[in-house]
């Protein structure tokens, strides 16, 4: 894993690695990738992936409103909000 890959992955995950720990973390990541890379030796041609242990179809909901709005509680849980909105540092589109 080169430094650039690590930076890209960190950015995608919105995480930054502590500089003091970065060497160790990268080393750990490489060890884990080596572990999962061992799967390459298994022949899986013509095998469908199993994304869920339940091979069933989804149950769906009816198009009938059942609102469970807890606006005040939702806004209360936010680190920053006013009476109507969640607030974040201003975004410039």
């Amino acid at each position: 894993m080169d430094q650039e890959t690590v930076s890209t992955i960190c950015y995608l995950a919105r995480l930054e690695i502590d500089k003091n720990k970065s060497k160790k973390i990268i080393q750990d990541l490489e060890t884990i990738i080596e572990l999962i890379g061992s799967l390459q030796t298994i022949d899986t041609s013509s095998i469908d992936p199993l994304y869920s242990p339940l091979e069933m179809t989804a149950l769906t909901h009816e198009d009938i409103e059942n609102s469970d709005n807890k606006k005040e509680k939702f806004l209360e849980n936010a680190a920053l909000s006013n009476e109507d909105y969640f607030l974040v540092p201003r975004v410039v589109e």
Binding site: H61, E65, N66, S67, D68, N69, K71
Partner: peptide
Amino acid sequence: KTKLFSRASTAFGASPNTNVN
């Protein structure tokens, strides 16, 4: 009438953060 993955209303123009479950 309701959202794609929840049963909250999709009505336009509701007061902010009320059509939210």
